[in-house]
């Protein structure tokens, strides 16, 4: 049987999270991808050239613009028959949409899968990653969200899957898109970045967060933040790394003025190399840091930026 992956994309293009999800799906069977949106022909085209994709379903309709869950869920449920598994990335897109699909199918979804043991058995973190559960689904169709950091991106060149256009009878006027304010940044996207510099409460103000931006730009890095820094308004919400924010696994994660609460570490402890800059030698972040620098960030960060600038 085949596996259905729900593609995530926006007007800028395909989200890399879709490519991680396809890698997970490949471990379960032949992969078919659903592209549902408005004016998304190019997305379908891009996915059809992934060698791992056997077929692309394209539902291009104005009613699917902005990925409203009410409408997409009905469409997916209409197409679900014949698939053994339905997968989406565990991003804000997948988290919003897939449980709605699962409930309509009377299936208990499994969230945030980090390993696929076999067709019905999976590993997933619980309690902010303090524990790993191995769970077995008894449902006929398995509905899974995939933690993208646990799976590589699939190759995106060389394939030529057929694209089949589908219509939909679903209609729903209960929810209406009003607006979006999306961060525009020249920096890499947080969840796909090789290097991340994150700032915490210790920065003290939005102005001081400039120190983090300067260091990040010197390294070509993305910028992250702790919840405390976001709550205080030093950084926007889409910067939050952690249990209830974004999960990241860059090559290098530099935590500046972040204590290392379990909820923060849940989002970054799979980074390859962790650097911590904190003035408290007993800060818990040092327990996971490969390189710890006990220092005042207001001296260390500018010095580091300067040292790296040449």
């Amino acid at each position: 049987m085949s596996v259905l992956v729900i593609a995530e994309f926006d007007s800028q293009g395909l989200k890399p999270a879709t490519l991680n999800t396809i890698t997970a799906a490949q471990q379960l069977g032949s992969v078919e991808v659903l592209v549902a949106g408005h004016q998304c022909q190019a997305i379908a085209q891009a996915l059809s050239s992934c060698p791992a994709v056997a077929k692309v379903w394209l539902a291009d309709d104005v009613q699917f613009a902005h990925s409203l869950a009410e409408r997409l869920a009905l469409l997916i449920v209409e197409r679900a028959a014949g698939f053994s598994h339905i997968l989406a990335p565990a991003t804000s897109f997948g988290k919003n949409l897939l449980p709605r699909v699962a409930a309509l199918l009377d299936v208990q979804q499994i969230s945030d899968v980090i390993a696929i043991i076999n067709a019905d058995t999976f590993k997933r973190p619980i309690y902010a990653g303090s524990l790993i559960a191995t769970v077995q689904s008894r449902d006929a169709i398995k509905v899974l969200t995939i933690r993208t950091t646990a799976f590589d991106v699939t190759a995106s060149q060389g394939g030529s899957a057929a694209i089949e256009t589908i219509g939909s009878t679903s209609a729903n006027a209960q929810s209406e898109f009003i607006s979006a304010s999306l961060a525009v940044s020249a920096r890499p996207e947080l969840t796909a970045a090789k290097i991340i510099v994150s700032g915490g409460r210790a920065l003290g103000s939005a102005e001081n967060f400039d120190l983090i931006y300067k260091l990040a730009d010197t390294l070509g890095a993305a910028v992250g933040a702790s919840r405390a820094a976001v709550d205080a308004g030093y950084a926007p919400n889409d910067f939050q790394v952690g249990q209830t924010g974004k999960i990241v696994a860059p090559e290098l994660y530099i935590a500046v003025g972040i204590s290392g609460a379990i909820q923060h570490m849940a989002g970054m402890k799979d980074a390859k190399v962790i650097v911590a800059i904190n003035k408290d030698p007993d800060a818990p972040i040092f327990q996971v840091a490969d390189y710890g620098l006990v220092a005042d960030l207001f001296e260390a960060v500018p010095a580091l930026t300067q040292a790296l600038a040449h």
């Binding site: 991003t91 919003n96 929810s175 209406e176 979006a180 926007p236």
Partner: peptide, 14 residues
């Protein structure tokens, strides 16, 4: 107003 990965989004619901 919803916190999404790319920033914020506003929806109107019946």
């Amino acid at each position: 107003t919803r916190e999404i990965d790319g920033g914020l989004e506003t929806l109107k619901l019946g």
